[in-house]
Each structure stands twice: as C-alpha cells, then as structure tokens.
Amino acid sequence: MKTTIAATTALLLTACSGGLKVVESDLQHHHWNLAAINGVAVNAELNSDLEIGEHFTINGMAGCNRFFGSATLEQNRLQADPLASTKMACDPEAQKVETAVLQTLSEGATVNNEGRQLELVGEQYTLTYQLADRMN
C-alpha cells in the first residue's frame, strides 16, 4: 500500500512538473491580443497585445505605450522583471488598460492557458488574451 501511494505521488509530481514545461512551450513564440480585463471587453482599436519570445522575452502594447523586458515562469506564475516602456500620455480609456496590463505583469499572475486563450490572473486584474493568427 505504501509503495502504491509513493508511486502515485511520484507520478503526480512528475506530471505536474512536466505540465509546466508544456505551458512554457505553449506560451513562447506567440502573439496574444488583449480581449478583456476582469471579464469586460477591451476596445480592440487600442491594439493592446503581448508577445512572448525565446527565453521569455516579452513585449507589447499596454494601452498607449509599448513595453518590453523579460519574464519568468515558475509554478504556473508569470512574473515580469522590471519592464521598460515608452512614456506617452494616454487618454483615460487607454490609461485604464495600460495600468491593468503593466501592474499585472509586474506584480505577477497565475497563467491559465487553454490553447487559443491565455488568462493572466493577478491580484487586482484578470487579463484575457486571444491568440493571434501569427506573430508579427
């Protein structure tokens, strides 16, 4: 009985650690368009997006400013290193989106990846991205 429990535990731990690697490969080399914040649709004309490249370099449009930097993925949590961004003034609608995106990436967020939909669940905001047809 103890052997069965130990073997089952080992298999579960292996599956969990293997699952994290699948998430990494599913996220890299993709272009994601922001669709919603906290379940509320985002104006598509803002073109808010996120690209995750090799070695988890990240870049995109937050609201009205471009951002770039790197991130880590540990235990299904995406955490951006300090991000650099342009510093243009935003209109109020774009500023709300920008604040949600930059705050969520900087503070870290739990990743839920369901193929063509990526959800980043942070402390205050849940960002829902849709996979673009191709990375620009």
Rank of each mutant, 00 (worst) to 15 (best):
residue 48 S to I: 02
residue 51 E to C: 14
residue 46 L to K: 06
residue 43 N to Y: 05
residue 56 F to Q: 13
residue 72 T to V: 12
residue 80 A to F: 00
residue 72 T to R: 13
residue 75 Q to C: 06
residue 63 G to K: 01
residue 68 F to W: 12
residue 53 G to M: 00
residue 30 H to T: 10
residue 63 G to M: 03
residue 64 C to P: 08
residue 74 E to N: 12
residue 43 N to C: 11
residue 56 F to R: 10
residue 67 F to D: 05
residue 73 L to Q: 07
residue 67 F to Q: 07
residue 50 L to P: 02
residue 71 A to L: 01
residue 37 I to F: 00
residue 26 D to M: 14
residue 52 I to G: 07
residue 64 C to D: 01
residue 61 M to S: 07
residue 77 R to E: 06
residue 35 A to T: 14
residue 38 N to D: 15
residue 72 T to S: 14
residue 81 D to T: 10
residue 25 S to P: 04
residue 53 G to S: 07
residue 64 C to H: 03
residue 75 Q to N: 13
residue 73 L to K: 05
residue 73 L to G: 05
residue 75 Q to W: 00
residue 71 A to E: 04
residue 49 D to S: 15
residue 46 L to G: 07
residue 49 D to Y: 04
residue 40 V to G: 04
residue 25 S to L: 08
residue 43 N to M: 03
residue 31 H to K: 09
residue 54 E to N: 14
residue 39 G to I: 07
residue 62 A to V: 01
residue 81 D to W: 05
residue 44 A to I: 07
residue 29 H to V: 09
residue 56 F to D: 11
residue 46 L to H: 10
residue 72 T to D: 11
residue 79 Q to S: 09
residue 45 E to V: 13
residue 68 F to A: 13
residue 58 I to M: 08
residue 69 G to S: 04
residue 40 V to K: 15
residue 38 N to Y: 07
residue 77 R to Y: 01
residue 74 E to I: 06
residue 36 A to M: 08
residue 46 L to I: 10
residue 43 N to S: 11
residue 73 L to R: 02
residue 51 E to F: 06
residue 41 A to I: 01
residue 36 A to P: 11
residue 35 A to K: 09
residue 37 I to N: 09
residue 38 N to W: 05
residue 79 Q to L: 08
residue 60 G to H: 01
residue 55 H to P: 11
residue 74 E to R: 10
residue 33 N to R: 14
residue 46 L to V: 05
residue 64 C to S: 05
residue 31 H to T: 09
residue 78 L to C: 05
residue 79 Q to C: 04
residue 48 S to C: 08
residue 63 G to Q: 00
residue 69 G to D: 01
residue 26 D to P: 06
residue 78 L to S: 03
residue 74 E to H: 09
residue 40 V to E: 15
residue 36 A to Y: 06
residue 76 N to A: 10
residue 36 A to S: 13
residue 72 T to C: 07
residue 68 F to V: 09
residue 78 L to P: 00
residue 49 D to G: 09
residue 77 R to F: 02
residue 34 L to D: 06
residue 80 A to W: 03
residue 70 S to K: 12
residue 71 A to P: 03
residue 31 H to Y: 14
residue 80 A to L: 02
residue 42 V to I: 07
residue 30 H to Y: 06
residue 59 N to I: 10
residue 72 T to Q: 06
residue 61 M to G: 02
residue 36 A to R: 03
residue 27 L to G: 11
residue 62 A to F: 00
residue 74 E to Y: 09
residue 54 E to D: 15
residue 56 F to N: 12
residue 62 A to N: 02
residue 44 A to Q: 15
residue 68 F to P: 08
residue 39 G to F: 06
residue 77 R to M: 03
residue 46 L to D: 01
residue 38 N to P: 09
residue 41 A to V: 08
residue 53 G to Q: 06
residue 53 G to N: 07
residue 49 D to Q: 11
residue 65 N to K: 04
residue 54 E to R: 14
residue 34 L to G: 11
residue 68 F to T: 12
residue 53 G to K: 12
residue 65 N to Y: 00
residue 68 F to I: 12
residue 64 C to Q: 11
residue 40 V to M: 11
residue 42 V to H: 08
residue 30 H to I: 02
residue 47 N to L: 12
residue 58 I to A: 10
residue 55 H to D: 15
residue 65 N to A: 04
residue 29 H to N: 15
residue 50 L to N: 00
residue 45 E to T: 15
residue 43 N to W: 03
residue 74 E to A: 14
residue 71 A to H: 00
residue 68 F to R: 13
residue 76 N to M: 08
residue 31 H to E: 12
residue 80 A to N: 00
residue 38 N to C: 06
residue 73 L to Y: 02
residue 43 N to E: 14
residue 51 E to I: 13
residue 68 F to Y: 11
residue 28 Q to E: 14
